[in-house]
Nucleic acid binder design. Structure first.
Lengths: 387, 387
DNA sequence: AAGACTTTGTTTAACCGATGTACAAAGTGA
DNA sequence: TCACTTTGTACATCGGTTAAACAAAGTCTT
């Protein structure tokens, strides 16, 4: 039993959070509109709005249009009250952005990772973030925190349990980065971060059930149901890439046979491309651009395999939207049709609406923006009640 | 914006719910213990406990042991303040129980379903439930509601969208039953109900991440993460049985190829048993009991296929516990080893703990008790805040 | 057996925040 | 200019929690 009990302070927290959320989502708004929208008494809204202004989280931006009476004073969320850092920690690169509290990018830094060990990555990360922080404008709250999306399995304590492609095991990334930077840090897997990014700032703004598929070296999925990120046990983000789609199929280094990512990942594609003498993904994309029938055939094949797994996801979660992100986005022209054909063939007929399939609208920035969102929402969750 | 705003009444609701929950979960408790446990002031607990007694939801059961001072008055949850009905609506049968508010069975009725149409099922259902209600002892709240677990896909409005084995489509089951019985009714799919039943009253009492697999004619799964039932979009319960485990495998009536339930369901098993001249599941179980090597081989084969799909679930959700329920429970002696071998072979090595595999400890009552739980929790959610 | 100490549960005054009402401020439109 | 609207603030009231005091009912030591 450690449920938070109720008292007046809780009531105030709840209502203040409601008012701030309304301003963030629907601003600019007058106090009267806020009262209508939230159902709170005018007087209550007045006091709470006053305090939010005091705290620099909202500001009066002048008078609005009258509809036959006194002109309303419009309130706007003060999105530059602080700044957040979002980091996408990939295998060969680290991409970091500085955003305001609405997730708008104000600065960006990218670094190549020349080695894979955690110490090195940590050094690069710290330097990158410090370079970003130096660019942050003066603000009441300063840097409110950092979020990291990492290509590996993360638990709810912020430890990277296993990152095969980085060759990491049990790295306490959250603690390490937090100590290095001195600001609150949140960690999650790159696919989950991408899902949040697309939901809040990208292709899924209107949808509430989204699956974000990160198709790179491996395959990861961030699954959002009812605007909530689905987290497995212990914060475990599903290793859906190691789901069997061919019971006696290709051997996977994980020990299993017929894993999806043996057929549908970037790595699978490159394995298939070796006989063609093409070693890099860029090369294959180029070959396809120039009309190479072998290259195009390979993309079709991978697209079909992607479709099989996506159909499984659709049959299991019935999402409105499947967003394909990471490297494989660049293959859109050649895989899109194959995916759509296979998915519509294999997904159950009694779904009321057909799931749409899109490619990440934030391009390579889904994960990094989602990561920034972790920091922003942690900042707001701290002194508030989560609605 | 329709978030509930905060005021004194909300605070009281929250605190009253906290106190009642504490009594339900840890009772008998004294007022002083409640104050310690919940963090609420002694005076507050006194008033709230008084009201709960007034409302017949708790009662004083006498004095407890003193530890050097005045003897405490012990409060106990009044589990007979009302009764709930749980229904498991299968393809060939309807099983219904009457439980007290702690989910203990006080009466039970089972009926065969001789036809499959919804009207007939509804008549049988109504008669069965009425027979149960007639057996309910007098109580302050009477019958607080009914929950139904049904072998089909249910949306969040209580409509059975599709129940292939019952041959139903778009049956507004909740409304129909509610009108027939005049009590609140909650509907969910049988696998979800089973998962709740096992979590609250069965094998999963201590676990918080459980997958309940209902293996009958088809395969359904109820997935519980962090004590919460995972619901797909629109209340959609995952049709995980139609997940592909063999890309170019057997055709499935659903239109897909290589669906899991084409290999691992009761129906798949019986299809395989036809050449042996065995037509019914009972027959096959009997044959295996008598040591028929063909029957045992078939069970092994199905067990292995079950293992493939379970490994997929384990890799995706990393549960603590997988509970196998419904018909296939009866095959435990012959499939258990095959399942465990395949799952441990195919599940990812970096899971910190190996998922345990058990067979439904509530036997055939998982779903029906889970269904009753829906009614009970709906009753408590009505006048309260959900914690 | 008496008195000191403990624990339980109730009572009461103080406090806090939301609400409704009255009201002041600042418009619009005929 | 005047009637009517709309916005935002001020203030008394209400309900609920809390802390502190207190009454009730024990135990334990001497």
């Amino acid at each position: 039993m450690n449920t938070t009990t109720g008292d007046q302070y809780l009531v105030k927290k709840i209502n203040k959070a409601i008012v701030l959320d309304a301003i963030r989502k629907h601003g600019p708004l007058s106090r009267a509109q806020l009262s209508d929208l939230t159902g709170l008494n005018k007087g209550t809204v007045s006091t709470l709005a006053g305090e939010l202004i005091e705290e620099k989280l909202a500001s009066e931006i002048g008078l609005g249009r009258s509809s036959g009476g006194r002109k309303p004073v419009m309130l706007l969320f003060n999105r530059t009250a602080g700044y957040a850092v979002g980091i996408d920690l990939g295998v060969r690169y680290a991409l970091a952005v500085l955003t305001d509290l609405e997730g708008r990018i104000v600065a960006e830094e990218q670094r190549e990772l020349e080695r894979r060990d955690a110490d090195y990555a940590l050094d690069v990360l710290a330097a990158t973030v410090k370079a970003l922080i130096a660019q942050a404008p003066e603000s009441p709250y300063g840097i409110v925190g950092a979020g990291i999306g990492v290509a590996g399995i993360v638990d709810d304590k912020g430890t990277v349990l296993f990152a095969p492609n980085l060759e990491w095991e049990n790295v306490e990334l959250q603690r390490l980065v937090q100590d290095a930077l001195g600001i609150p840090v949140a960690i999650d897997n790159e696919a989950n971060a991408g899902a949040l990014g697309e939901m809040y700032y990208g292709a899924g703004k209107e949808a509430s059930d989204i699956v974000y598929l990160s198709v790179g070296t491996g395959i990861g999925a961030g699954i959002v149901i009812g605007k909530h990120l689905m987290k497995g046990s212990g914060g475990f983000s599903g290793e859906i890439g190691h789901t069997t789609i061919e019971t006696n199929g290709k051997k996977c280094p994980c020990g299993n046979k017929g894993c999806w990512e043996q057929y549908a990942s970037e790595r699978a594609l490159m394995d298939m491309a070796k006989p063609l003498g093409i070693e890099r993904f860029d090369g294959l994309v180029e070959a396809a651009c120039q009309g190479s029938p072998e290259a195009i055939r390979l993309f079709h094949e991978v697209g079909e395999s992607l479709g099989v797994g996506i159909a499984n996801i659709v049959n299991t979660f019935n999402p409105e939207l499947v967003v394909i992100g990471n490297q494989m986005t660049r293959a859109e022209p050649w895989i899109r049709n194959a995916i759509e054909r296979v998915v519509s063939m294999r997904s159950l007929p009694f779904h009321r609406r057909q799931a749409q399939i899109r490619f990440a609208s934030l391009d390579t920035h889904s994960a990094v923006l989602g990561a920034a969102h972790y920091a922003i929402s942690a900042f707001f969750a701290k002194e508030r009640v989560t609605l």
